[in-house]
Design a binder for these strands. Structure first.
Length: 192
DNA sequence: GTCGAGATTATCT
DNA sequence: GATAATCTCGACC
């Protein structure tokens, strides 16, 4: 079923729009994702090379890859040995909203429950421990939509493009969704 | 010297 | 006030 995840992230990303991620009683319909092409992508963690940190991204497709501090959920794609993944940026809670709302006490509006990578992960209850989870049989489940949803593409958000992020319009979202976050410039660190 | 884990600062709501 | 595929420093090989 997940054979199609073996394709490039830029082709898989649009397919994930409208897909449902289910963790326990909470389910979220994806409305915004970003494609990461691993070693050829300056914004990817795998750009610097393989490491234990991103080992999952080099693994087989259909698995969950999470990133530290704020817990960002990613879906690994491309065959094993090739670093590539899709960041789940935002989504809409369709089931278990009570539980999701309780986890995200800081968010008042339903649209805010999953309006960001970290929020999406927390609302679903995804933790760093879930890295490497099989999305087909693990605690975190991914249900691909029967048909591809309408989508738009543009520059990625929050990615520190080394040399020019504009050349990588690998951000995909469903138009008209309130849960889709606005454009956010890459956070630049203070430099002495 | 390289990898990993956690922290900092800028931007957004 | 909260969040963000960053960045720097500490630990281990």
């Amino acid at each position: 079923m997940f054979e199609l995840l073996s394709r490039p992230a830029t082709e898989v990303a649009p397919l994930l729009l409208g897909a449902v991620v289910r963790v326990g009683e909470v389910a979220v319909r994806l409305t915004e994702v970003e494609a990461y092409m691993g070693e050829v992508d300056p914004g990817s963690h795998a750009f610097r090379g393989p490491g234990k940190r991103n080992a999952v991204m080099y693994g087989p497709p259909g698995h969950l890859y999470t990133y530290g501090m704020h817990t960002c959920a990613n879906v690994v794609c491309m065959p094993e040995g090739v670093a590539s993944g899709i960041l789940l940026r935002a989504g809409e809670v369709i089931e278990g909203m009570d539980v999701a709302a309780e986890r995200r006490a800081t968010s008042k509006k339903p649209a805010d429950l999953a309006m960001g990578p970290a929020r999406l992960a927390v609302a679903l209850g995804i933790r760093l421990d879930d890295a490497g989870t099989n999305l087909e049989s693990g605690r975190v489940r991914l249900e691909l939509p029967r048909s591809q949803s309408l989508f738009s593409a543009g520059p990625r958000t929050g990615v520190a493009g080394v040399g020019g992020t504009d050349e990588y319009p690998w951000r995909f979202w469903i138009p008209g969704e309130p849960s889709v976050s606005p454009y956010r410039p890459a956070a630049k660190r203070k430099r002495s």
